[in-house]
Amino acid sequence: MVKLNSFSLTALLLMFFVANVYAQQKKPLHFTQAHTLTITGKAWDSQPFYHRLDTARYAGLSSTLKRLATHSAGLAISFKTNSTTISARWQTSPQRSSDNMTGIAYEGLDLYILRDGRWQYAGVARPSAHDTSETSIVENMVHGEKTCLLFLPTYDETLFLEIGIDADATIKANPNPFRKNILIYGSSIVQGASASRPGLAYPAKLSRQTGYHFINMGFSGNAKMETTVAEMIAPLPMDAFILDCVPNPSPEEILERTANMVKTIRRYHPEAPIIAIQSVAREKGNFDQQIAQRVKLKDQYFRQEIKKLQRDDPHLYLIEADGLLGTDQEGTTDGIHPNDLGFERMLQEIRPAILAIFAKYEI
């Protein structure tokens, strides 16, 4: 038999006491299925609930595009609660994070709460080593109703999500807090690489900063303006379109496909503004001359094609690439994808340009 001296016994009793007090202080939680609340960031009300697109409707899409469409990039759950605690329990697919993104951005969640008319960051839900995670996002909040947005994983499929609140609190759906519908079609940069958490991807930031409903149609490595994709996005009930898709296609594909992309959208939306954005700088091209020349050529061809189309299209606009990431070469994670600083610099340039265009149309 192990004998405990008085010091050890006292320490052991103290540990049990602290654990008991902590257990008593932890409030029991009530979990609500997120699919009973409001989802934002979708082009239309389709199933599956956490997919950006119902890919079964589009037989011509590649398997890669269909997989990327299952990622919940840009989607958020809108709700109100009077809880002092908000937790989450969710499951994602078995894939693991990439080497240029945080686990939180890849398959975690982040929460924003409206305070004094501004969406303010409240906390993150860090994914566990398993596909199913449960964690507290924020605790010890003041009593009273809070308007919340919970952003979903950027680079993984959300299979289910439950939101936990105090057992004696209430939760209810909140209407979409954003107005109109603006689709942003583009590459991994649009999808959210390499923001540190989901709500810092630039379409999500644009929504919170402007009040417009920006819909994330970023397809990592696969935004190549294919005819099947043009036919997919063109009929959607949008008030405006943003084409930020220069990074993925080759220079030759830009020459071949830009006009078709714009004209296909025009068939369905004769007067809606279409805003084309050149590629952000590839900072890998600071010293690699081949990369620098390739990006320059793609931006040149894209500008050339847009300028041609503008002769007959007064509702087509171009935002050029100069200065989008600043001039100190500190705006990317890996020389390709913007970090949080790079995204904020990008928004400083494109946000006022976008808002000025919208003002012309009273959007």
Rank of each mutant, 00 (worst) to 15 (best):
L14C: 13
N100W: 08
A76N: 09
G192I: 04
E362Y: 12
V280A: 10
A167V: 05
M225T: 01
A201Q: 04
Y50W: 12
F151P: 03
S97V: 11
Q24C: 10
G335P: 11
L183M: 07
A292P: 05
Q209L: 14
A76L: 06
S194W: 00
S187E: 05
H143G: 14
H143D: 15
G164R: 05
Q348W: 12
A281L: 14
I274E: 03
R67E: 12
L53G: 00
G285F: 10
E231K: 14
S46Y: 05
L65M: 09
A276R: 00
P338L: 01
A193M: 10
E145A: 06
Y185H: 02
L53V: 03
S62G: 11
G323P: 02
A272V: 08
P28K: 06
F7L: 14
Y202R: 01
D54V: 06
T64Q: 13
K172W: 07
H337V: 09
G60D: 14
Y185S: 03
L12K: 14
R257A: 11
K307G: 02
T158I: 13
E231D: 14
M141H: 09
T85M: 10
L309V: 01
H143N: 15
H143M: 14
D131Y: 11
F358E: 03
S98Y: 08
Y317K: 04
Q304D: 07
T158V: 15
F358R: 04
K296N: 12
I291F: 11
I350C: 03
K360E: 13
A201N: 04
D334W: 10
S87Q: 08
Y112R: 06
I277A: 02
P249Q: 13
F219D: 02
L149W: 03
P247E: 07
I39Y: 10
Q191D: 13
V229L: 09
A23V: 09
T70W: 02
H51A: 13
A193V: 09
I113E: 04
T158H: 10
T81R: 04
T55S: 08
K3W: 01
P249L: 11
Q310E: 09
D168F: 07
T158Y: 07
V190H: 05
T154V: 08
I319S: 03
G117L: 01
R96A: 15
E271N: 11
V142C: 07
D168E: 13
V246W: 00
A195E: 00
V280M: 09
A193Q: 11
H130M: 12
F302D: 00
E330D: 15
I265S: 06
Q33V: 09
I233M: 08
D99A: 07
M238D: 06
P94Q: 11
Q290H: 15
G74W: 02
S62K: 07
G211D: 00
A276P: 01
W44M: 10
E162D: 13
N260H: 14
I171N: 01
M232Y: 07
F16S: 14
A122T: 11
R197C: 00
T55A: 06
K224W: 03
N339E: 01
F214Q: 05
I363C: 07
V295Q: 10
L347V: 13
Y317C: 03
V229S: 04
Q33N: 14
D288I: 15
P127H: 02
